[in-house]
Computed example of a mutant assay.
Amino acid sequence: MSTFTTQDNVEIYYKDWGSGPVVVFSHGWPLNADSWEAQMYHLTANGFRCIAHDRRGHGRSSQPWDGNDMDHYADDLAQLLDHLDVNDVTLFGFSTGGGEVARYIGRHGTARVKRAGLISAVPPLMVKTEANPGGLPVSVFDGIRQGLLADRSQLFIDIPSGPFFGYNRPDAKPSQGVINAWWLQGMLGGHKNTHDSIKAFSETDFTEDLKKFDVPTLIIHGDDDQIVPIDAAGRASAKLIKDSQLIVYEGAPHGITDTHKERLSADLLAFVQS
């Protein structure tokens, strides 16, 4: 397997497909790099080098007890780019991965970055606060934590069977294969790591990170996203990032990498070719 070891001795797995201009993908919670496979396949087949890593504590990477937070996630991404010595990179982040991309730019700048994309992404802040009244109550995330501790496997069936892909909507046509793949990826992650990551993706404020974006940025979000509501996320991020383009997928859920994979792959390809 392709791996490298971080400065704090965490082994990170990554996949590195094809050749050409570099596109790097950061995945959502509690998934791994496989969740991006449709988009990676499409872009690689169209002349791009596509790289995706399993976040620390997820997938095939090590499961450290500590360091399951956005600063470490961003620093791991920075070390991946340094390890591979890639430049003029397009960074795409889905959901929690969008937070990782934002914090990376906030902490490490854009010396290696040519473009960025936030897909169904968590920034600027998910949890409801006085300054962020449109966020979700912390009780929502407490419920996820409780479900994780009570029966992690069942939670990882319930989430993709319901709101993640919009399969709880009356006209939905659930795919058991998609649900199974989500469950498998979730169960590969560490118990402590996926628990800690809930706080990381829900309570980290990325406002100042987004203000540091100085590259063309694509924001794509479904307006029926029940996991990361568009008003407090995609639309709010678009107001904070200069030179950003917001594309709204009408009626689309959170998991558009699967439910809208052909459209998303085409939109990402158009962006990296622009």
Rank of each mutant, 00 (worst) to 15 (best):
T217W: 08
T217I: 04
T217H: 03
T217Q: 03
T217G: 00
T217N: 02
T217P: 02
T217R: 04
L218D: 00
L218S: 00
I219E: 02
I219N: 04
I219Y: 01
I219R: 01
I219A: 07
I220D: 00
I220V: 14
H221C: 11
H221V: 10
H221F: 04
H221N: 09
G222V: 00
G222W: 11
G222D: 01
G222C: 03
D223P: 10
D223K: 11
D223W: 11
D223M: 10
D225K: 03
D225C: 05
Q226A: 12
Q226N: 04
Q226Y: 05
Q226E: 13
Q226G: 05
Q226D: 14
I227N: 02
I227Y: 00
I227E: 02
I227L: 02
V228Y: 00
V228W: 00
V228K: 01
V228E: 01
P229L: 09
P229D: 03
I230V: 08
I230T: 03
D231N: 13
D231A: 11
D231S: 11
D231R: 13
D231M: 09
A232M: 13
A232C: 06
A232T: 11
A232W: 03
A233S: 15
A233Y: 03
A233G: 05
A233M: 09
A233R: 05
A233N: 12
A233I: 06
A233W: 03
G234T: 14
G234V: 15
G234C: 13
R235A: 07
R235W: 08
R235V: 02
R235G: 07
A236T: 09
A236G: 13
S237A: 15
S237L: 09
S237Q: 15
S237Y: 12
S237D: 11
S237I: 05
S237K: 10
S237N: 14
A238M: 07
A238L: 08
A238H: 13
A238V: 03
K239L: 14
K239N: 12
K239W: 10
L240Q: 05
L240G: 04
L240A: 02
L240F: 07
L240K: 08
L240E: 03
I241T: 06
I241W: 08
I241F: 08
I241D: 01
I241A: 01
K242C: 03
K242Y: 05
K242W: 06
K242A: 14
D243N: 15
D243A: 14
D243Y: 12
D243T: 14
D243V: 12
D243P: 09
D243E: 15
D243M: 12
S244M: 11
S244W: 05
S244C: 08
Q245I: 08
Q245P: 08
Q245R: 15
L246S: 09
L246I: 14
L246W: 12
I247Q: 14
I247R: 12
I247K: 15
I247L: 15
V248E: 02
V248T: 13
V248A: 02
Y249H: 09
Y249S: 05
Y249I: 07
Y249V: 07
Y249W: 09
Y249P: 05
E250F: 11
E250G: 13
E250T: 13
E250W: 10
E250Y: 12
E250Q: 15
G251Y: 03
G251H: 04
G251R: 02
G251E: 04
G251S: 06
A252G: 07
A252K: 06
A252S: 12
